[in-house]
């Protein structure tokens, strides 16, 4: 069983990329399953199930950050997919603040960025890009070749070790090399109960331990405990 975790800002084309990947996996006789983790609405699971007849699921994270939600449910999801006979589990997660990375060791981490984004995006998204294995750049038909090349250079400057793949997901151009990377990647180690062994988050998420996290809505750092930050200085710890 192989696992790919796909992250990226909303509407960059994560599902369009995965649709092309699913089509090619099936053509090679590899059985995929799909899990979508989103905040409050998603229908990609129904669309992919209807189009390809593969096992799909979705999870709404609701009050929880979707990337934290993915950490919580990933073990269960692998067990579900393995039980459904899948050889590859594709997890699409809607990151919110783009500061964390939902990738895990032993699985392929893919970030999907669009060529139409601002040139500073690769510098802004942090570990979601730098901890990925592959950066897939979509919507390449929407910009000039010069802009594509410069966008790629900005990605490589921000994350030198990440493999960059440009694709036109609508027409399936550039998808095939992704499949090679996915199927050549590591296999998960599953226990007898199909629970994955040793899955660990690749990077530490940004610190989010404060009283806002638990529902205190007063504005101003003096009202809060834990890790807080005033306007004029860096983060520090206040309280017990």
């Amino acid at each position: 069983m192989r696992l790919a975790v796909v992250a990226g800002p909303a509407t960059t084309g994560k599902t369009a990329v995965l649709r092309q990947v699913v089509r090619r996996l099936l053509a090679r006789g590899v059985a995929p399953a799909f899990l979508k983790i989103d905040v409050q609405y998603a229908d990609e699971d129904e669309a992919l199930a209807a189009e390809f007849g593969i096992p799909t699921r979705k999870v709404y994270s609701g009050e929880l950050c979707p990337d934290h939600c993915s950490v919580m449910v990933l073990g269960d999801a692998v067990r579900w997919a393995a039980g459904a006979g899948a050889e590859v589990l594709l997890v699409e997660t809607a990151g919110l603040c783009l500061r964390c990375s939902p990738y895990v060791d032993g699985a392929l981490g893919i970030v999907v960025l669009e060529a139409t984004s601002g040139m500073n995006l690769p510098r802004k998204v942090g570990p979601m890009l730098s901890l990925a294995d592959v950066a897939v750049v979509t919507k390449i038909d929407r910009v000039s070749q010069a802009e594509r090349e410069v966008f790629r250079a900005r990605i490589e400057d921000a994350a030198p070790s990440v493999l960059v793949r440009e694709v036109n997901a609508l027409h399936g151009i550039g998808i095939d090399p992704l499949l090679g990377t996915l199927l050549g990647g590591p296999q998960l180690v599953l226990g007898e109960d199909l629970e994955p062994r040793g899955l660990r988050l690749r990077g530490a998420p940004p610190v989010g331990t404060c009283t806002i996290c638990v529902g205190k809505r007063d504005v101003g750092w003096r009202s809060h405990f834990g890790v807080v930050r005033p306007l004029e200085s860096a983060t520090f710890y206040r309280g017990e």
Binding site: M119, N120, V143, Q145, A146, E147, E149, V150, A153
Partner: peptide, 24 residues
């Protein structure tokens, strides 16, 4: 390739854009 685009989406100054492109 010089495509049909008649506008840029890249929000960089012309000099910095060209410098990055010429570097690679």
């Amino acid at each position: 390739l010089i495509t049909q685009h008649t506008s840029f989406l890249s929000d960089l100054p012309v000099g910095e854009f060209l410098l990055t492109h010429a570097r690679i």
